[in-house]
Design a protein around this nucleic acid. Structure first.
Lengths: 168, 168
DNA sequence: CGTGATCTTCACGTTCACGTCAAGTTTGCA
DNA sequence: TGCAAACTTGACGTGAACGTGAAGATCACG
């Protein structure tokens, strides 16, 4: 668990701060940048320090969250993230109301597609996890029942023969 | 997705068959054996072929499933699997009714502990996934609402100014 | 009992996702 | 302006989880 020093002092964070706030390392951040997951802030004067904002903390946390929850590689994550980028683009375009409705619809439809792809991934995994959950729950109930049976005739003779096979 | 040739011809499978049936490679199977995830069938005459049964197919599939769903390393998976081993042991002992009740309770309690550990893992992940699911659903709803708004006054002038900020 | 497919054990190679060290540079601050 | 702390790029190292040969043994079948 990351040391949750959740007092984001606001803009102008440096890479070390970002690492601490997101619960990771500077190496990882540079690596993610290299992989295109964190945009390289193109106009950085080369050899000067990287600067970040609170939004970047959020973005990085979201990245790590998705990576963990969806169990995807950084490459696949990059694809999903490109969708997020597109959504940001959409938001920017939508904020200016001088875009023609046809284009607006296009952008929105695209965003919808991206969201649906992510949702499909999430739903599939959630379903599988739920299945596993139910299985474990069933096993647990069986074990607890056996314990209760055992406790019922405590101090007595042998308990009644169980007679039911436990599924593997 | 593994090519689901689900016609398990029954016992006496060889490593290639197991690989095909479980949707993986022989290398992976040997590796898992080396890691102690698949027991090495101790009395194999050294330099003879490995033999497997349909149960092993199940076990291997379960292994891959857990690894994927819980996102754990093979090491951690080994620990969880040791629990399964213990449960198998319990089942074996419980089948013979000549074990004294105290020991039975012990074994059952142990099994319960293992199951609870797995359940905790699963529940935590399921919760996180559900949170992500709700978030994506919300975003999707917003996008769809915008599309409907746009479609409502189609062919007309500009749509009414949205006036609501889209959360990042 | 020959033979081709499949398997055996080394052993080294590879990819991913970073860790780690080195040498020089930039920044915040006294 | 001086300086320590934090940063920069570059390069090599590492652990996990396999992939990929090589050289020989074994199996299943005609």
């Amino acid at each position: 668990m990351p040391q949750d020093a959740d007092i984001p002092p606001d803009q102008s964070l440096r890479i070390g701060d970002l690492a601490r706030l997101a619960g990771t390392t500077t190496r990882t951040i540079r690596y993610y940048e290299e992989m295109g997951l964190l945009p390289a802030a193109a106009q950085r004067p080369s050899r000067s320090h990287r600067v970040y904002t609170a939004a970047d903390v959020e973005r990085l946390r979201e990245l790590m969250r998705l990576k963990d929850l969806l169990g995807v590689s950084l490459g696949e994550l990059g694809t999903l993230l490109a969708a997020e980028e597109a959504r940001a683009e959409v938001r920017a375009q939508l904020r200016r109301e001088d875009v023609d409705p046809a284009r607006r619809r296009e952008l929105l439809a695209e965003a919808l597609g991206h969201l649906d792809r992510q949702l499909a991934l999430v739903l599939h995994r959630a379903e599988e996890l739920e299945k596993l959950h139910r299985e474990l729950d069933d096993r647990r109930k069986r074990v607890r029942r056996k314990i209760r049976e055992l406790d019922a005739n405590a101090g007595g003779t042998f308990p009644p023969a169980p007679a039911d096979a436990l599924s593997s």
